[in-house]
Design a binder for these strands. Structure first.
Lengths: 344, 344
DNA sequence: TTGTATGCGTTATCAT
DNA sequence: ATGATAACGCATACAA
């Protein structure tokens, strides 16, 4: 094969055999040279590397995967990427996975009809899979846990055969509720359902409900978005018995609620208090700044990637369930905070 | 092989041979049955499908890829996922790629040290690659264009061997500048990060500069983020000659600028006008609502995925350069808009 | 230190 | 309609 012909070879079409032939060695030697496994004599090494350069050889990923018996890739399934929350988790996940030498394959379920097939297809091309709660039907989760790659469920109820990773919800929700009581608020709305049993929002509702009892009522939104929160809050706050405080399922819903209050001429927190959850960046910049519960979003993703790595490499318990700490962030939207402190 | 043993097989470890053996047919028949290629008799088909069910067989992705000579996956390289912009583009990309039967592998370059190797590794496991401008060194782009999979550059200067897809910048930037002149503004700052030649922000600067000439001066930020815009705007607006209007490189920087103005006791747009770019969701909700230029972020991603599909399947020109339309969105942050219109 | 030969799990061609 | 069997591209145990 003459040089021009070789250089004109189709991209990615160069195989280890052509490199071996050009270098005058066997494919085993080429492989050893490139991977650093096994000994290679200096001059031989030179010849091989030169051939690799000249032919622009790059090993076929499919060939490597087949021979190695692994994909060097992790998957992640999330509902959408519209808000900061899932994006932040994904950032943490990708960063750690990448450091561990694993590519990240994503799957967004929002608006998809063939979720089951898409998830199965994803499962077969990764060494480990992270799945957000409520993105995948329960029976599919069981199927994956039983006959799929190592699985970690994020913000999902515990389930046999899979690891679980989530942030604390019930305790900080109760703490938030008590803080609102200390402000003197007496009637409440929990804005941001619908929720599936055991997911984050459900747990927040449980925590709030546990402290406030019948003084809090649930109000549904279509989604966890600014627009949904805005629309639902407009109805709620314009209605007959406006609550003293609106406890929102997350920050985006809360930002929508604040907008709605402003449009209705209501002062926040003077006429109505508003709280969020997550502590996304906009929470700090909102007016008034949003009282919220900070959860370590990136660490959620990073932890999932690390857990999967342990599972894949054989280290790590198969049924571990980890809960990350959260922190109540008190800002202006829940009520005035005079120097002397709140009334108790 | 008895049934219990088969069912207890390691997950994902079942091969087509085991299915064939259990069904009493050849692997060719199993493959035909599952892929629908070639004829299979009714009863045979039944036997095969039953065996597949019982063994929970799922074809090895690596095996399929190797045999088919394709990955059924697309890659995308972006700098980060912190703001709405790249996330929105990614949403469009993933949605279309998924519909076309291709998984999406992501790579974030933010804070990465071994970008070159990571990009090369990504390139070899996909059938097509989308790369954002300024995320990858120029010579690597050339290398990819020359000996990589089909490539589409998003918001990147045109380059031999690759398709290009971006939104219009220069014309709407000029239009925006003229609109600000109509408001009566006479001194301007262009607030944005250091820009690389030919990228979006550079083009916006060119467009603005073309109309405003020396009346506009560039002001650097560290990043395209709310915090960076906030910090830079604080310095700018507290300084000696405060401009009439701050033209920001994007909406996030603009939101930061508005925050800075508020903190300094300056009214927007009364004391200083502010404009953004992109029309992210927060732009509409900001106070004052942000005058900006809307660009079709999701369509940018969707278009990239479609272009790659055409390139991969042989349709589609190899050096196409497409520019998407943008729209000037006039809201409150650029100045008052009395019913009678602006002064000219 | 190097080469030979086998396996990895499919797909698809070519007989039958 | 079905079955052998040859790719596909690489890694690696085993020989030499």
């Amino acid at each position: 094969m003459d040089e021009r012909e070789a250089a004109a070879e189709a991209p990615g079409g160069v195989t280890i055999y052509e490199v071996a032939q050009r270098a005058g060695v066997s494919i085993a030697t080429v492989s050893r040279t490139l991977r650093g496994t096994g000994p290679v004599a200096g001059p031989t090494r030179e010849k091989v590397l030169r051939a690799v350069q000249e032919l622009r050889f790059t090993p076929s990923r499919a060939g490597v995967s087949l021979a190695e018996g692994r994909h060097a890739a992790n998957g992640i399934v999330f509902p959408n990427l519209s808000g900061p929350y899932f994006a932040e988790v994904l950032i943490g996940y990708e960063e750690v996975a990448s450091e561990l030498g694993r590519s990240v394959i994503i799957l967004s379920t929002k608006g998809r009809t063939a979720i089951r097939d898409l998830v199965r297809e994803l499962a077969r091309r990764v060494d480990g899979l992270a799945v957000f709660g409520s993105t995948v039907p329960a029976d599919l989760v069981d199927e994956l846990a039983a006959s799929g790659p190592p699985l970690v469920l994020i913000s999902h109820a515990e389930r046999a055969g899979a690891c679980t990773l989530r942030s604390e919800n019930i305790r900080p929700a109760a703490e938030l509720a008590r803080h609102l009581l200390d402000h003197g608020h007496r009637s409440f709305a929990f804005l941001g359902a619908p929720y599936a049993t055991g997911d984050d929002v459900d747990q927040r509702w449980q925590g709030v409900r546990g402290v406030l009892g019948d003084a809090v009522r649930p109000v549904l939104t279509d989604e966890y978005t600014v627009d949904s929160g805005h629309a639902a809050a407009l109805r709620l706050l314009a209605g007959p018995d406006r609550p003293d405080a609106v406890i929102c399922s997350d920050d985006e819903v809360a930002l929508g609620a604040i907008l709605a209050a402003e449009e209705l001429g209501l002062a926040v927190p003077g006429d109505v208090a508003v709280t969020g959850w997550d502590d996304i960046m906009a929470a700090r910049h909102a007016r008034p700044a949003l009282t919220t519960v900070r959860q370590p979003m990136r660490e959620l993703g990073a932890g999932a990637a690390r857990t999967l790595d342990a599972l894949i490499s054989g280290t790590g318990a198969a049924g571990a369930h980890r809960v990350l700490d959260t922190e109540l962030i008190v800002r202006g939207s829940c009520g005035p905070h005079p120097p002397g402190g709140l009334r108790k």
